[in-house]
Nucleic acid binder design. Structure first.
Lengths: 91, 91
DNA sequence: TGACTATTTCGCAATAGTGCGAAATATTAT
DNA sequence: ATAATATTTCGCACTATTGCGAAATAGTCA
């Protein structure tokens, strides 16, 4: 059976500079709390929170609450490869 | 020097079902005329033409005019790999 | 309980994306 | 030059996305 996240919806989830920045922050494999991601994006908390929910809804990231904080991690590793490919001078 | 097409703009160009369909049609490496792509998308000519210009503007496809027809081809092969990855049941 | 911290949800105004049909452009054939 | 074909450009109405601040929610600690 096919995924409930068709390709164009995943592209849509990534079609924003802040959301790509979030994915980059998580590309090393380490989890980050929302506070880290807010700082990385340079946007307001409410805005970043909604960006995170878009990425999560598309299955690109997942979250886990620990204590007061929520930690996010990347769940779609091949997006990192693709971004790397896009950044090579000659793709 | 870095590309003039940052990742989030490439994702934005792909953030539409018709445009992903176009990329798929071109993934085999063969060129297709607009008429083929109009048929594949099931949308009007003017709409598909604009989708093609979005993809071209992002550097995902390129065009070449031959006679009365314009042929498009994929210029960003790694997008095919990424879409394939997205469609695997377990990514 | 109440205060404090981390995060999300809501409502808003502004901007961007979508698909359409009509008109414009360009190339070829008569 | 005229006509026919293939494609693009334009203007419109509609919908979706964006970022913000205020308010709501949830967990921890005194």
């Amino acid at each position: 059976m096919s995924s409930k996240h068709p390709p164009h919806l995943i592209f849509r989830a990534l079609a924003n500079e802040a959301r790509v920045r979030v994915v980059r922050e998580l590309s090393g494999g380490e989890e980050k709390c929302v506070c880290d991601l807010v700082e990385a994006c340079g946007l307001g908390w409410s805005t970043v929170s909604r960006h995170l929910s878009v990425l999560k809804g598309a299955g690109v990231i997942a979250d886990e609450k620990r204590g007061l904080q929520v930690f996010y991690r990347l769940t779609l590793p091949c997006v990192t490869n693709f971004i790397d490919c896009l950044e090579k001078p000659s793709r």
